[in-house]
Design a binder for these strands. Structure first.
Lengths: 342, 342
DNA sequence: TGCGAAAATGTACGCGCGTACATTACGTCA
DNA sequence: TGACGTAATGTACGCGCGTACATTTTCGCA
């Protein structure tokens, strides 16, 4: 491997000049620039990224922390893949690296050492909940004023930056859509309230009912944990209450699909006996029968936005002062599972 | 941030001893060890990972390169998520980092500079094809004897390590299962032949027919590109040939599901009019109606295996000599889409 | 032609660590 | 008690780069 010194010698300049040319800093005569580039090319010189990072004192990596759930699938792979895609684009455009870090959900996670050890320059947290164990790690980052951002989660700690989706509005639209389609006895199957989107969806559901002059009814509220299995389990309760229901809004597609399957096994027809609307518009929504009406969430754009905001502010990050919050719009995708009531 | 020097002073030892304790190398008196650890704890000392990597001349990162496909979804998110999970586990156990790198499919990709610039110590390539543009990058790595491994792809270049799945055997089993279930006119919808699993699945399909004394028939062979859309498109051809078919084996679940949907729209019943078996056993297979019989591929284990082999051999990697190949078993998961012929 | 400012380049050092090698402390056995 | 081998620790340096600062060159203008 050619060294910077060799390049300097071949080009007849000092190492500093080579460095300047390669980093595009400082004034350099065009002719010199060409000579250096030519020499570097000839020697097949590759900058030692590690040494460069070390000298700069920054790793050049954005850390992305996501929950690792071996068996139970509370999150769809779709969810994270889309966000990672968006983050990946933004990261690459800025010539940085994307360090993937897994954490165990519902357990404390030490984010701060990742910064102190200069493994990452900034951090994006995916799939976070409001559980105390998880919030603790977030708070620790906030205490240090470190550059990080949570996606799709509004932390109790206002010092945590976030990029979220308009779940409340999306849910309101979804339920409004059901009402406009002739449904009146609309239930709600929510996921764990430890996740902020759950609470927002419930608020949207409530608001839509209120706006339509419909009374919320505790008998129409069901609880799951975002897994398909929990949707199947909820089917039992839903089935028992079927005469109090003509539609149900479900907090994600996985549960909606599990619910739909289990209900079908009991002879319930969708949407004739019960209309269903899900959330996420994951690719599975279009695969099931009937295709599932769902609230689309721009996961990719959310990832991209979070990474962009974070990395663009990084050079002059001023701790808590630099905190940002952004909310991206959701969109209702209407399919057959919520066809107008006949 | 506390420095190594401060720790050394507080513990009353030299920096070298601190280093030895923290890295667990060389002989250190137990009492000294405790004093150093105590001092480090007291000062909240964090090793500067970047500096350590620099001094060692190794980044401590495993690069994982995967195709970035903005719109078209040739790969299911399931595919990569599972593999990343497995890789992530192995990487964490070894105290290394996982650097995620996106590449554009069907375009040349420069792997070698990632090594030369010491951004990564080893590399795993996901979703690779045999297209010349893609093979070129792989060959370049092999030429240098670099430590890398491809997952689920058998490269033309034997110097490329690989961890694959027994697709041929899995496919053979799938088709054999169809035959045992009473089907005789069995078609095959394959994905792009540029992917080695496609070729293996075709071989397995052929072998099962041959073993059962059935003649392959070009009229029963169909082509897609692994996307759900291509499955839908293939439905047209399949529908036209329906009287020559009573079952069809499809090279992945996405196409199988697209095909199933489009056929259903034309009034074809599964499995009564046409049985279907897919590949991958992605989570969607269990979500569709009827649930899809599919060949399970141990993506997670494949990721883990690749990372383990690679990282464990890394300390004394001897170029092409160290190349390895592994094939993990597949398993047929029978569901209703291939119920015995009535 | 001379001069001053800006442009261009060179010199020199530190970033924080791992580790080869030198040195010292310790324990054993004759 | 002295010599010797090994355990334990200290000293010193280099890894390859970015960059502050010193130095030289260039060029416009009087």
């Amino acid at each position: 491997m050619a060294s910077r010194k060799e390049v300097a010698e071949l080009a007849g300049v000092s190492e500093a000049t080579v460095s300047r040319v390669l980093n595009g800093v400082g004034p350099v005569r065009e002719e010199t620039r060409q000579r250096v580039l030519e020499a570097a090319r000839k020697l097949n010189y590759q900058i030692h990224a590690l040494a460069a990072s070390f000298a700069r004192g920054r790793s050049g990596n954005l850390g992305v922390v996501l929950p690792h759930v071996p068996k139970v699938r509370l999150f769809s792979t779709y969810y994270f893949s889309e966000m990672l895609d968006g983050i990946g684009e933004a990261v690459r455009e800025r010539g940085m690296g994307l360090l993937l870090l897994y954490r165990r959900p519902q357990e404390p996670f030490d984010y701060v050492p990742l910064f102190r050890s200069v493994r990452i320059d900034a951090c994006i947290v995916l799939g976070a909940s409001s559980l105390p164990e998880e919030e603790a790690g977030i708070r620790a980052m906030a205490d240090e004023g470190l550059p990080f951002c949570m996606i799709d989660h509004r932390s109790g700690d206002g010092r945590a930056s976030s990029v979220c989706a308009a779940h409340e509005e999306g849910s309101r639209r979804a339920v409004q859509h059901l009402i406009e389609s002739g449904y009146r006895k609309i239930g709600f199957l929510n996921g764990s309230p430890w996740y902020s989107p759950s609470r927002e969806r419930e608020a949207g559901y409530m608001r839509a009912l209120r706006e339509a002059g419909l009374a919320p009814d505790p008998k129409r509220m069901f609880a799951g944990n975002y897994s398909r299995t929990s949707g199947r389990r909820a089917a039992e309760d839903v089935y028992a209450r079927l005469r109090d229901l003509d539609a149900i809004f479900v907090a994600n597609d996985r549960m909606a699909i599990g619910l739909m399957q289990a209900l079908r096994e009991r002879g319930v027809r969708v949407p004739d006996d019960l209309a269903i609307v899900g959330c996420d518009d994951s690719d599975a929504a279009a695969m099931v029968d009937p295709p599932l009406t769902s609230v689309r969430v721009p996961f990719g754009a959310m990832g991209r936005t979070a990474a962009e905001r974070l990395l663009d502010r990084l050079p002059d990050w001023r701790g808590t002062e630099s905190v940002f919050h952004e909310t991206l719009a959701t969109e209702l995708v209407v399919r057959e599972s919520s066809a107008p009531r006949s």
